[in-house]
Design a protein around this nucleic acid. Sequence first.
DNA 1: ACTTCTTACGTCATTCGTAAACATC
DNA 2: GATGTTTACGAATGACGTAAGAAGT
Lengths: 298, 298
Amino acid sequence: MWSTVELREIRVFLTLAEELHFGRSAERLGLTTSRVSQTLRALETRVGGELFVRTSRRVRLTPLGERLLDGIRPAYERMETAFAAAREQATGVAGPLRIGTYTHLNYGPRFLEIVKAFERSHPSCHVVTTDTGLHRNPLDWLRDDELDLLAMRLPLDEPDVTIGPILSREERILAVARSHPLAGRRSVCLEDLAGYTLPYASTLPAATMDAFVPARTPSGRPLRRVEHRTVADAIVRAATGETVHPTVRSFLEHFRHPDVIGVPIRDLPASETALVWLSANRSAKIRAFVHSAEVVLA
Amino acid sequence: MWSTVELREIRVFLTLAEELHFGRSAERLGLTTSRVSQTLRALETRVGGELFVRTSRRVRLTPLGERLLDGIRPAYERMETAFAAAREQATGVAGPLRIGTYTHLNYGPRFLEIVKAFERSHPSCHVVTTDTGLHRNPLDWLRDDELDLLAMRLPLDEPDVTIGPILSREERILAVARSHPLAGRRSVCLEDLAGYTLPYASTLPAATMDAFVPARTPSGRPLRRVEHRTVADAIVRAATGETVHPTVRSFLEHFRHPDVIGVPIRDLPASETALVWLSANRSAKIRAFVHSAEVVLA
DNA sequence: ACTTCTTACGTCATTCGTAAACATC
DNA sequence: GATGTTTACGAATGACGTAAGAAGT
């Protein structure tokens, strides 16, 4: 009855305004001429006046039709463009794919290989990697739409985040100063850490951080933890003996310090990192990268 | 299957983007929440990704939804505006109503009264009158959308033009110089005009002009006709005796010249003028004015 | 337990194509 | 009579609401 115009009608109007011929318009629209006629009639009823003068020989816009065309064509084109752009963003694999991590340790040993495989499969898409640091919760980078994917340490229990393929799985070690009392051990257990200070990052999700640097020993004694914000900070504190640093094996391969050595931790399970993303943002680009990762990691 | 987005979906999306609440959106849209949910789901399928993150407690745009909103909202508003403007033009009685004539003779004796009645009934609409002159076919003013209505002399036989109420009906007279041989007659007939020169305007429709200034006498003798472009021109030529001017009675009331008098023409029917308009342009404004004219003339 | 979003399903309105009618050249 | 638009009508799609279900607070 009233102003519920639909794009179906607009499309008929715009096509007919271009073709000025019901038959050709119908063909272009994949409709029959009768449908074009009826649809246009319906639109004219809504507008309240004739949009075309038609005889069986000539079809021509009325001044009213002309005016409607001038107003609606640009709006329609803009709408289609916006829609196509959104569709591209959701389903297209092109443009930058933004992946973040905290230190390249999270990327795992095959990350470069994955990126290469992905970029080979999708030449119009390129990977941009970013270090999120520890100043903000890395998941906020996803939630604020600054990153598409995160190489993130597990465990992770956030309802809006999907956990994808595992990128690394590593033995836990304690990074300690050579001169530290624990440095001579073949291995340590958590209970041994009681009384020492451990590094801690409060910006990480609590579940993740607590699994990486426990808050208590198995027997329940609290472990003192001190905030740090950079890797350099952490390793220097370990080197000076201020902290003992529960980490993963490859930490010392990447952030070597002459005064720091690693001692295996017996009673912590291997630590994993994984590709994670916001469930709601699962786009074709993300799917494609995850697929490449799965192929390489298989 | 693909990009057949419909405004129905867009409206749901835009409303939900404002309300961020299915229930309120449904209410505003005059739908049920289930319909809002399903329609949005359909749109998301078309776009290829989630537009909102929804739990039963919170509804929030995804980055994808945000982007679509930015693109589509202005386009939608522009489209609605354009549509409303066209609807206003077609159905509204507001703004200028442009009426043209050739000399105020065509308006007839009641025109001012009609305009007053119309403007009283429709205070948001005002009449603008224009003299079309004789340099162009007056109907072109309608066809080029420079005028809405024409006070035009009949007969008129154009397939795209509607003839409305009669504005004037007048006896035919011959305007001649006082010194002219025909000036002494009580009346003349067309046959008497043979051998004289008559004024003529080739820009008027042939049917109209030929009825006003015949091309031949009843017996078939051709009447010499000479082009003129202004009333002043016509009356001066009549005054000098260069032409004899078949016109209507009131011509000499409006365009008096000391050396010109009128002699009735016995064998020409009364001449009429009427409101005419392009059939396809019959808008509410035109209908309203025609109605006022009919009321006044009744 | 309560609010809010989603899914399932039956009903009805609209859209569609076919075919015939109508109009113009 | 050929070309092109409109009208009539039956079939199928899909838009709708109701009611039950699931999920989060």
